[in-house]
Design a protein around this nucleic acid. Structure first.
Length: 751
DNA sequence: GACCTGCTGCGGGCTG
């Protein structure tokens, strides 16, 4: 077959023959030599379904088979996945191969029976497939056994690596990787698998924070197949007919909602192009999944055709979601799923012909990940349609709406995706909530922790790369305050759990570093679990509700059991899951500016979308933005810094700090029209001075508690942590100077 | 600031 193939263990080669593979895939050829040698960290980047899992496990299993390890001497390799569903998928793929060679494979996550885990603990060996949270639980509950369980550990494989980047969960995993190496008493090779990375250095830095240069990188050359992109525009009429609303008639009232007409037109297009095919529709929010799926289902019902559009998101029950996934894998009949980010990761839903995305979405990497789910078979194009809605322009339309921000943003993101750009990692994030968690976890694992030992594990090890010794000590002092009670100090200096710490560590949800909101379960009168709604959702009996793409009426609410009983009905709206969209990355904003200033129309725009882009450029010129940083719109000044969220937040807070009422509109800051002179003075001062202190600016923000253990931090620590994520103050002077240089002389004339 | 993700051990009752 090939040189790489010949180097594999005989049993592995036999298994490959039996699979009737004609050749090894490109990424497998490349990864096998690196991993057969062992010891080396490696990032494996290749498209979905390109054989990444085998690229990692063929050589790892080969090595284990050749070494003939002592049974029960500890797990030889650990596979970490962000999803239980992925562990179940991978178990099926690895088990057959390992069985052949007598290497045990054990699944370990929340759904696995305690008896299976007990057996694995008694005779640990082979490959352990698990989650970060289960590893956390093993280390915390069985700290004394960790050395025995992981004594033989030679390799850790992290699947869907990009899902951990920049997340509290990723920081926890980095700390756990370090704790595993300490337990093993040796350096353990780290292997990361990902489909969507554009910048391999980010992945390398995640995998081995102290020494990213040493990480090998293998990228597949395959996957440059044909790409079919379209951006479709839909016009939102300014005054939808309100005839039915006057009559007060339930279901029809929905049709009078602003946006319902464009939404219906989008649903019609989805129905016409996707029916009879296999596709995914990324709707952007759970609420929109529900309304679109319900609309598609009703179109099908009106035509009397079989149901083929299914809903999939995080508030639907496992039963409903797995049913949709099974239906997608059934190749005998067509089906499409309307989903949120739930189907962005590698859950197996079979071959997908086309992908649709509603709205520009939040990130370019998300867009690439979604596109990657289509056209997975060789010779098939990847198809993606992006749908945007824009309001009809009438006399009262706001300048920001006339700038057609969604259309221009979607254009910019598609352009950046085609240039293979991805959002980089946010530098300098502290993750103090996760640090608090890891201090408690280390105490739980070892039954106590020396102050110095904690610093070695969390700071010096680079598990928290931005952590300084003084900040670490500040966090410990805060955790030890009597009113916080997370930790106490024994006479010899050892850190022990305080009363609150005992309570937190003993809790069932200690192992996860993210929060879960309280929810009601929604059950049908036939006893079927549909999903959950946030407890804040205002619910009364008789109320109408859309869930799982169907319409329901609430029969009864059982507050004690946190359960809502529903029956089939007509009308209704989705539960209020809540939320707004944030600003895109700076590079996206820069690309948007290039689009406003350019003249060419990308080929992938349909006629209405091209019209939106023309209108956007006309507005841009009309507002004088080609030469000016600021314009007047009615009673507002609009300030365009073209910087992206973190610098713009710093600028806004610096202006607020100087008494100016600045609000963030996404692409621009808005100030009262009368503030023109004061704005000029404030920008002058900011341009001349040193950069403002980010943590001081954060004091102006009220709701900074976001992550699970933020509630234990004081205002000072919270400001540092919040600023490290949301504020880039270093560029405020330059940005202020640039704004000032392009400030028009006369701000008094309305645009 | 959208979306998503995870989970132990024990005691009591029932079955074979």
């Amino acid at each position: 077959m090939s040189a790489s193939f010949d180097r594999l263990h005989e049993g592995v080669r036999r298994w490959i023959w039996r699979q009737e593979w004609e050749e090894l895939r490109d990424i497998q050829e490349r990864s096998i030599p690196v991993l057969l040698e062992g010891g080396r960290d490696l990032v494996i980047a290749a498209a979905t379904a390109s054989g990444k899992t085998e690229a990692a496990f063929l050589p790892i299993v080969s090595r284990l088979a050749a070494e003939d390890r002592e049974p029960g001497g500890g797990f030889d390799a650990v596979y970490v996945s962000p999803l239980r569903a992925l562990i179940n998928d991978q178990f099926g793929r690895i088990e057959g191969l390992c069985e052949e060679l007598g290497i045990p494979v054990v699944k370990w996550h929340g759904d696995v029976a305690a008896s299976v885990k007990a057996r694995a603990r008694q005779r640990p060996g082979g490959i352990l497939l698990t989650t970060p949270e289960s590893l956390e639980a093993i280390l915390c509950r069985r700290g004394g056994e960790a050395a025995r369980l992981f004594a033989a550990l030679s390799c850790v494989v992290v699947d869907e690596l990009h899902a951990f980047l920049d997340q509290p969960r990723g920081r926890q995993l980095q700390s756990i990787l370090n704790r595993l190496e300490v337990a093993a008493g040796q350096r353990v090779a780290r292997v990361g698998l990902s489909a969507t990375l554009a910048d391999m250095r980010v992945a390398a830095a995640f995998l081995r924070p102290g020494d990213p240069e040493s990480v090998a990188i293998e990228q597949s050359a395959e996957g440059g197949g044909e790409l079919r992109l379209q951006l479709r525009g839909y016009l939102e009429p300014a005054r939808p007919l309100r005839v039915a609303a006057v009559a007060g008639d339930g279901p029809d009232q929905e049709k009078a909602d602003p946006g319902a007409l464009a939404e219906t037109a989008i649903a019609h297009h989805l129905f016409d192009t996707l029916r009879g095919r296999r596709s995914l529709v990324f709707a952007g929010s759970r609420g929109r999944v529900e309304t679109i799926t319900a609309e598609l289902a009703e179109m099908g019902a009106a035509l009397g055709v079989p149901e083929e559009f299914l809903a999939h998101h995080g508030s639907l029950s496992r039963e409903i979601r797995e049913e949709a996934e099974r239906r997608m894998r059934d190749t005998t009949r067509p089906a499409s799923i309307v989903c949120t980010t739930t189907l962005e990761l590698g859950i197996d839903v079979g071959h997908i012909e086309a992908v649709a995305q509603l709205g520009p979405g939040r990130t370019v990497s998300g867009m690439r990940q979604r596109l990657g789910r289509s056209g997975r078979r060789r010779g098939r194009p990847a198809v993606m349609r992006v749908y945007v809605r824009e309001a009809e322009i009438v006399a009262s339309t706001h300048a920001m709406d006339r700038l057609r921000v969604d259309t221009v943003q979607a254009c910019a993101m598609l352009a950046l995706m085609l240039r293979r750009w991805n959002e980089p990692s946010v530098p300098g994030r502290l993750h103090l909530s996760t640090l608090v968690h890891q201090v408690l976890a280390l105490i739980a694992q070892h039954g106590g922790l020396g102050v110095r030992q904690g610093w070695e594990r969390l700071g010096a090890s680079r598990a928290f790369p931005e952590l300084t010794l003084p900040l670490y000590l500040d966090v410990l002092r805060r955790m030890g305050r009597p009113e916080v009670g997370l930790i106490e100090q024994a006479p010899d200096g050892t850190l022990l759990p305080g009363p609150e710490g005992e309570r937190v560590i003993a809790g069932r949800d200690f192992y996860a570093v993210f929060m879960t909101a309280e929810e009601f379960r929604v059950v049908t009168d036939r006893g079927r679990a549909l999903g959950t709604v946030p407890v804040q959702t205002p619910l009364v009996p008789g109320q109408l509700l859309i869930l799982a793409g169907r319409r329901w009426r609430v029969l009864e609410i059982d507050g004690a059991r946190r359960e809502v009983l529903v029956t089939r009905a007509f009308g209704g709206r989705p539960p209020l899951f809540g939320g707004e969209v944030g600003a895109p990355h700076e590079e996206v904003v820069r690309e948007m500016r290039r689009l406003y200033e350019g003249r060419d129309r990308p080929a992938y725009l349909d006629v209405p979308a091209a019209g939106f882009l023309d209108e956007a450029r006309a507005t841009y010129r009309g507002l004088g933005l080609a030469g000016a940083s600021c314009c007047r719109h009615e009673d507002q000044l609009l300030l365009f810094a073209w910087t992206g969220a973190r610098v713009q937040t710093a600028l806004r807070l610096a202006l607020v700090d100087r008494g100016l009422a600045a609000t963030d509109l996404g692409l621009a800051l808005a100030l009262p029209a009368a503030a023109g002179t004061a704005l000029r003075a404030a920008l002058g001062a900011l341009a001349a001075g040193p950069p403002p202190e980010a943590a001081t600016l954060a004091r102006l923000v009220e709701h900074k508690v976001r992550d699970k253990y933020d509630c234990y931090l004081d205002e000072d620590l919270l400001c540092l942590d919040w600023a490290s994520e949301h504020v880039d103050a270093s560029r405020v002077p330059d940005t202020a100077a640039a704004l000032l240089a392009r400030m028009p002389e006369d701000l008094g004339t309305p645009a």
